[in-house]
């Protein structure tokens, strides 16, 4: 790498090519940028979906199936997460469409976002089929 490469990379990052999501190289938070929100929705979708399954299993294991009837707070939290999954799926999908429209990120990153959106859509569909979301 030469001295000239470093400022060039900095410029790329400042024009939406930031692969780290959320910070410019200079440290200024870009929380309002569409690309950052799209990326955050994808990360949130993955984390909340897995978190929903883990929390549901944990509550059922520790509190028994009775918790589906009596709905203690942890179960209420678990049963609220599918709605968050739905919202994040929407955000991820809009983000994927915007990524192709406005050429956010690299090609690989756009494909990644699109795959996440598709997974979110089928996951949400199954949550609806299983009764966790109204159909």
């Amino acid at each position: 790498m030469t001295d000239r490469d470093v400022p060039q990379r900095r410029a790329e990052r400042q024009h939406g090519g930031d692969e780290r999501g959320g910070f410019t190289h200079g440290g200024r938070r870009r929380s309002t940028s569409a690309s950052w929100l799209a990326r955050a929705a994808g990360v949130g979708l993955s984390a909340v979906s897995i978190g929903f399954v883990l929390l549901l299993v944990f509550v059922l294991e520790t509190g028994g199936e009775r918790t589906l009837f009596t709905r203690p707070l942890p179960m209420r939290i678990a049963l609220a997460l599918p709605y968050l999954v739905g919202a994040l799926t929407l955000g991820t999908t809009v983000g994927a469409l915007s990524a192709w429209r406005y050429r956010y990120w690299s090609l690989v990153a756009r494909i990644h976002q699109t795959v996440l959106a598709l997974l979110g859509l089928v996951f949400t569909w199954q949550l609806s089929t299983l009764g966790f979301l109204p159909s």
């Binding site: 994808g42 984390a47 979906s49 399954v53 997974l119 089928v122 996951f123």
Partner: peptide
């Protein structure tokens, strides 16, 4: 669907 989606999310 659930297995694929959760695997994909985890892998991501």
């Amino acid at each position: 669907v659930l297995g694929t989606a959760l695997s994909g999310f985890g892998l991501s």
